[in-house]
Amino acid sequence: MSPFWIDLIIMLIKVIVVMGALLGGVVVMVVVERRGAGFIQGRLGPNRVGPWGWLQPIADGIKLFLKEEFIPAQAYKPLYLAAPAFFMFIAFVTFAVIPFGDKVELFGRTIQLQIADVNIGILYIFAFASLGVYGIVIAGWSSNNKFSLMGGLRSAAQMISYEVALGLSIIGVLMVGQSLRLNDIIGMQTQYWSYLPRWNIFIQPLGFLIFLIAAIAEVNRIPFDLCEAEQELVVGYQVEYGSMKFAMYYLGEYTNLITFSALIVVLFFGGWHIPWIEGLNIHPLLLALLQVVAFVVKVFAFLWFFVWVRWTFPRFRYDQLMRFGWLVLLPLAIFNIFVTGVVMVLIP
């Protein structure tokens, strides 16, 4: 076989594995979210379907499959049908540039544990993450429902506002890392200051905080779920969606969550890097496997953090949300860039 075909097959395998892992992650998240919510509220959560309730997402999936496919009479059908698919597509595509492991030498080939090693990985993620808002706005408009439209509008305003802070908060990381390629950013973080790993969280704590808050806003989760807001807007843009179309939004939302957790890990917590493991002299393949596991563990730690935050804080009011985004996060992000620049000039 020519190298082209081998490369193609390797690529396909990577795509399938990552897609499977993402879907699996969503399934796990559904259980963790619902049972975690139960535990936090002094309940048990769903524990009837399967051991410890692990089959609950499958039961949910079957239920959603069997539901009636309903299209509102006044909806604009082409867009109404396209919106959830678009939303989910964007959510899955965004993950493509996330590196989940180091390079692996297998059968004399170097395999990058990443679907696409784009040299502007971060820009790619931001570009696609902001496309995701179209899925919501189009859904809000095409369902021809007041609540949907309000949800879509709020979502658009919120995404735009928080994207600014989100983008500016990582400028500090990019200034320190001198690269937009996610692998380079992780490579930078594999170094040490004597014993402390040079993770960006220690260099950019303020940037991390802003990024974390803006990321929660970006994936539309409580306390920033203004576009869903059950009490005011029913569920916002999802009002008219049922059966699998609803499931697609559900999937897309959790995939976005996983992507942003992964992004936080890559940018601030050393990605797949395990500190102090270099001295142990482990077989390279085993090391690569351990690093993938480390990456997954770190991502799940952040997923749990998102769940924890969700069941702790109440929702913002709309004006509070806007004021917080523009008058607090944005100046802080700019201040962070300024401080980083000054420090970089003073300490070369």
Partner: peptide, 19 residues
């Protein structure tokens, strides 16, 4: 205040369930 809130919920996570 946020950290206090998070501490409260995680305390409840390990508390007795009333179900």
């Amino acid at each position: 205040a946020l950290i206090k809130g998070l501490y409260t919920t995680i305390k409840h996570f390990f508390m007795r369930r009333f179900t």
